[in-house]
Nucleic acid binder design. Structure first.
Length: 466
DNA sequence: AGCACA
């Protein structure tokens, strides 16, 4: 429609609250910009380090007249606008507001997210990090972890001002060489702000510190040694074992709920906590057991198995670096079964007699006398009044980690007193769960109120913690 | 020295 939209140059520029500044010194800071512009009015937004050379910037005034006054002043001034002795050229921007593209990491807060590039986690101790960042103020807490981005640390200061001074001074810089092992050639710090305001440090360890609480217990399993990588017989690095399993769920055609995971993983011992989250477009879950042994048994047993028939929701298990999950007690993505609020533990159905704790030692399970086994199966197959067990109690009753054909009395739990929910695809009498790739749960059915976790777990007295 | 960002 309009006949022309030619670029607007100096003689035709219309005034704007937003000014475009160029020929700034390299990586001019926001503070320097504000110093230059604030005599003319209130600055409501800035954008620094713009352009390929990162030497341009935008400044938005609260009022158009303030921008006009700055442009007019320097248009007639004998002294040009300067930053660090460099002449700065100022024009009206061709836009009328700065679109705030500040990522969350640029929103100041008292906690910094520091990525230490080019190092292994073992190269930089938490003491070194503490030393470096303490130069700017009291460091309250540090938590370190390894992510895809590399070795990272969250560092909590008293306030955003202290955190900012540390960020401004250290972002892009390196930790002094004398604080690092000799083989480290470079270790640039990339620093942004975390959205956290208060880190939840549970233990003093080589990964995390709370300097405000010297009496915080030391976590023995998180200290040097146990959590270090173990070299296996093949010479490859083995994952250090953990009481927390990381489950990646492949081919997730059906929703996998906290309840479903609880049912599946409780077959091996008390599940203390569960957290489900998305990562790299897939679904993962952390499942916390009280001890490494239980986790190891569950890992061996469940690796490669599918939660549902037909290859759906295949589990891949590894050890997590976590030892104690910090999860919401009751949400759709997490559960803390160690919390003793009964209103949150309806799924545990207290009041049912605790069955003998036969599932704690899965190695022994196939050897159990048929009578005990049947009794146990029958007990857990009784649905609570008014409830329909939505998983297959027959499958649940069998140890999914390698039932040995012939040793499990398959007749006893097909008896008439036990309702059967055998999947049509599973021929009865076979031993489907001895092979990876077969289901651990009954298929979810559309339109049915599926409550896989709605009944007690075999042999698992509810764990209420202390 | 000459207009950003997803």
């Amino acid at each position: 429609m309009s006949t022309s939209s030619q670029p607007q140059f100096r003689y035709t520029q219309t005034p704007s609250k937003v000014l475009h500044l160029r020929n700034l010194p390299w990586e001019c800071t926001e503070e320097e910009l504000v110093e230059l512009c604030k005599p003319f009015g209130k600055i409501v937004n800035t954008k620094c380090n713009v352009g390929a050379n990162r030497n341009q910037a935008f400044v938005e005034f609260a009022d158009l007249n303030q921008a006009i006054s700055m442009v007019s002043y320097y248009a007639s001034s004998s002294e040009p606008a300067q930053v660090r002795g460099k002449t700065v050229y100022i024009q009206y921007s061709n836009r009328h507001e700065i679109v705030n593209n500040k990522s969350p990491g640029d929103t100041p807060g008292n906690v910094l997210l520091v990525t230490i590039e080019g190092v292994e986690a073992n190269d930089v101790t938490i003491e070194t990090i503490h030393l470096v960042f303490s130069a700017f103020g009291f460091v309250h807490k540090i938590a370190t972890f390894e992510k895809a981005a590399g070795f990272q640390a969250l560092i909590q200061f008293t306030d955003a001002e202290t955190a900012s001074s540390a960020r401004n001074a250290l972002d892009g810089r390196s930790i002094p060489r004398y604080l690092l092992p000799e083989h480290v050639t470079s270790c640039h710090l990339r620093i942004s702000y975390s959205a956290h305001t208060d880190l939840n440090i549970k233990f003093q360890s080589h990964r995390s510190r709370d300097y405000t609480n010297p009496f915080l217990p030391v976590n023995p399993t998180a200290m040097e040694g146990l959590m270090q990588p173990v070299v296996g017989p093949d010479g490859k690095k083995q994952e250090p074992q953990s009481n927390v399993l990381l489950a990646s769920i492949e081919n997730m055609q059906y929703a996998v709920t906290v309840d479903v995971l609880h049912t599946v993983f409780s077959a091996f011992g008390t599940v203390q906590k569960i957290a489900i989250f998305e990562k790299n477009g897939g679904t993962q879950a952390l499942i916390q057991y009280p001890d490494v042994t239980t986790a190891a048994v569950a890992k061996e047993a469940l690796e490669g198995h599918c939660i549902y028939d037909g290859g759906y929701c295949k589990l891949h298990l590894s050890y997590s670096r976590h030892t104690d999950l910090n999860v919401k007690a009751y949400s759709d993505k997490s559960r803390d079964y160690t919390i003793s609020d009964p209103s949150l533990l309806a799924a545990q159905v207290p009041g049912l007699p605790a069955a003998p704790n036969v599932w704690q030692n899965p190695q022994a399970a196939p050897l159990y006398p048929g009578t005990d086994y049947a009794a146990s199966a029958a007990m857990q197959a009784q649905p609570p009044p008014g409830q329909v067990p939505a998983w297959d109690p027959n499958l649940q009753a069998r140890p999914p980690y390698g039932s040995v054909p012939g040793t499990v009395p398959s007749q006893s739990y097909q008896s008439s007193s036990v309702p059967t929910y055998v999947n049509a695809a599973t021929p009865s009498g076979s031993s489907p769960l001895s092979q990876p790739g077969v289901s651990l749960m009954r298929m979810p059915q559309p339109g049915v109120n599926v409550r896989p976790g709605g009944a007690p777990v075999p042999g698992q007295p509810p764990y209420y913690g202390q």
